[in-house]
Amino acid sequence: MQPDLSLVFTAHGSELRRYLHRRVRDRHVASDLVQDTFVNLLERPDSRINDIRAYVYTVARNLLLNHLKQEARRRTDPMPPEAFGDIAADQPSPEEAVDARQQLERVYAMVQELPRRTQEIFVLNRIDGLTHAQVAQRLGLSESTVQKHLAMAIAHMTRRMRAR
């Protein structure tokens, strides 16, 4: 049989609110936790509770711990504006951008040295991400032919990169 919640609230509500307020240092949060505690009690269908006060405090303590964990996850530490200058930008530096562009141009030039069909297979597989089977189907070739062209392209590019 469920205890009469109005009697339990009258007997333990204020004491529970003080207990929670000492821990969270916020009257509103403490009141919310008390309310959540009694909602929890209300939602328990016909549970047998031997010591209602101990049960109320156990529920409240669990809700408090959950609240404190959530607060810890949400907490952010204030930082002075100067500190944001030390955070790395998502963009590459101008030097890195030029270097990446030059590398891309070298790879593009190496691909242009390949026979037209090998270029097409290389781009579909390595750039567009198609599987060997998908490339073969798209171009009307066997998978073996696609693999041979890719092997030739990779060997060519490896030789050219080593030569630099």
Score class of each variant (00 low, 15 high):
129 G>I: 01
117 R>W: 00
131 T>C: 06
158 T>C: 03
136 A>N: 08
150 L>I: 07
161 M>V: 12
117 R>D: 15
150 L>Y: 07
141 L>S: 04
135 V>H: 07
134 Q>E: 15
149 H>Y: 12
158 T>Y: 02
134 Q>A: 14
138 R>H: 09
152 M>W: 09
157 M>W: 04
122 F>W: 10
130 L>Y: 13
120 E>N: 06
134 Q>G: 10
128 D>I: 00
134 Q>L: 00
160 R>G: 06
115 P>T: 02
157 M>V: 09
148 K>V: 07
118 T>P: 08
140 G>Y: 02
135 V>Q: 07
149 H>K: 09
126 R>K: 12
141 L>W: 03
133 A>N: 07
133 A>W: 03
141 L>K: 06
123 V>F: 06
138 R>D: 11
148 K>D: 09
137 Q>P: 01
153 A>K: 00
159 R>A: 12
130 L>S: 07
155 A>C: 02
161 M>G: 12
142 S>W: 01
153 A>Y: 02
122 F>I: 04
133 A>V: 05
149 H>D: 14
135 V>E: 09
121 I>L: 08
160 R>P: 02
118 T>K: 03
133 A>T: 11
152 M>T: 15
118 T>R: 01
126 R>Q: 15
149 H>I: 00
120 E>V: 01
143 E>M: 02
142 S>G: 14
126 R>N: 14
149 H>Q: 13
125 N>P: 05
134 Q>M: 05
135 V>P: 11
161 M>L: 14
155 A>Y: 02
150 L>A: 05
123 V>I: 13
134 Q>R: 08
130 L>D: 09
129 G>W: 01
133 A>E: 15
138 R>W: 00
116 R>Y: 06
162 R>I: 00
115 P>K: 03
152 M>N: 15
128 D>V: 03
132 H>W: 07
125 N>D: 08
148 K>N: 08
123 V>R: 11
154 I>W: 07
119 Q>S: 04
131 T>S: 15
142 S>T: 13
142 S>M: 04
148 K>F: 05
148 K>H: 12
124 L>T: 06
115 P>E: 12
153 A>R: 06
158 T>N: 14
130 L>R: 13
125 N>K: 11
132 H>K: 11
138 R>P: 08
145 T>S: 13
136 A>H: 08
147 Q>A: 14
138 R>S: 12
140 G>K: 01
127 I>P: 04
142 S>F: 05
139 L>G: 11
115 P>R: 04
150 L>R: 05
162 R>A: 11
141 L>N: 03
136 A>Q: 09
120 E>S: 07
129 G>R: 05
161 M>W: 13
135 V>Y: 09
120 E>P: 04
151 A>P: 05
124 L>C: 09
119 Q>M: 03
152 M>L: 13
136 A>G: 06
151 A>T: 07
147 Q>S: 14
138 R>A: 11
144 S>H: 04
145 T>C: 01
143 E>L: 02
137 Q>L: 03
125 N>G: 04
121 I>W: 05
145 T>Y: 10
133 A>G: 09
118 T>V: 14
143 E>W: 02
145 T>A: 15
134 Q>K: 07
162 R>C: 00
127 I>H: 14
124 L>Y: 13
141 L>T: 01
140 G>D: 04
149 H>V: 01
157 M>Y: 02
135 V>N: 05
147 Q>L: 09
150 L>V: 03
148 K>S: 11
